[in-house]
């Protein structure tokens, strides 16, 4: 495919560094993400994956470097700023309220409402929340008994699906997922990965942090490795192999050996 035919770049990081006092968490990290692309970010614990995600989602401000969204430089001071542009984060600990139902969780913080007295009183529009939640789950092909089920009664995979539904409820352009399959039963992993593929089909770009090579090689278009807070290597999925990517995680290029990992 020549450059003109490729989908446009949605999100780009240029030379991002992040220091915490004397500690350098990220140093001169760059990458770009195209519309409808799924990029896998790998790296060992402490490689800077989570810090980079927090910079992208507005939780941290970069110490150096800049972020470009659809070609324009952006500065996020809170996650709300990033959300407003359509960058959503699915947290590893899910950030759902187990005591509340699916619809209420999807619209947490963005509740459908009817306001009176100039916004002084806001009534929660339960009917609209239910209808819109059902419709949204329908388009994502997420099947639940009822959107009024408490999230605490759902399985891990269903919760992850609700968290993803929540992230995509309002015109998301980029969804960042931190280890979305780490806590799931094996039979539920596939469902979540298919959901990611579905987001891609709908033109949503996904940044997937994962330790699981199976996940990376099933859904990603491209994989990028961080090592000690720096860009280490990246490649299109077709141009690399599992053992090479595992080598990148451990900081070795052109890794071909047969380590314990490769035999698993």
């Amino acid at each position: 495919m020549n450059e003109m035919d490729r989908p446009p770049v949605v999100l780009e990081a240029r030379g991002i560094s992040k220091y915490f006092g004397a500690v350098t968490a990220l140093e001169d990290v760059s990458f770009s993400l195209r519309k409808g692309e799924v990029i896998g970010i790998v790296g060992d614990n402490g490689a800077g994956k989570s810090t980079l995600m927090k910079v992208l989602s507005g939780l941290y401000r970069p110490s150096e470097g800049k972020l470009l969204f659809e070609g324009n430089e952006v500065n996020f001071s809170t996650p709300s700023d990033a959300r407003r542009l359509g960058i959503e984060m699915v947290y590893q600990d899910l950030a759902l309220a187990e005591n509340m139902n699916i619809a209420e969780n999807i619209f947490l913080g963005t509740e459908p409402r009817r306001t009176f007295l100039g916004g002084l009183i806001s009534f929660y529009d339960h009917r609209q929340a239910r209808a819109r939640a059902s419709e949204h789950l329908e388009t994502l092909k997420i099947h639940v008994k009822s959107v009024e089920q408490a999230v605490g009664d759902l399985s891990g995979g269903q919760r992850q699906a609700v968290a993803i539904a929540r992230a995509t409820a309002f015109d998301a352009k980029v969804v960042i997922m931190d280890e979305p399959t780490a806590a799931l039963a094996i039979r539920e992993v596939g469902k979540v990965l298919d959901l990611i593929k579905d987001l891609k089909k709908r033109g949503i770009s996904v940044i997937l942090i994962s330790h699981r090579m199976d996940d990376i090689f099933y859904v990603c278009d491209r994989v990028l490795a961080l090592f000690h807070g720096k860009n280490f290597a990246q490649a299109d999925l077709g141009d690399t192999s599992r053992s090479e990517v595992i080598g990148w995680i451990m900081g070795t290029l052109n890794h071909k050996g047969t380590l314990a990992h490769d035999r698993l």
């Binding site: 950030a95 309220a97 509340m100 947490l108 963005t110």
Partner: peptide
Amino acid sequence: RRLYSIGGNPQAARVSG
């Protein structure tokens, strides 16, 4: 309803803005 969410998971409420 937000009070219920704060009681259920204050972290979730916080990251939801």
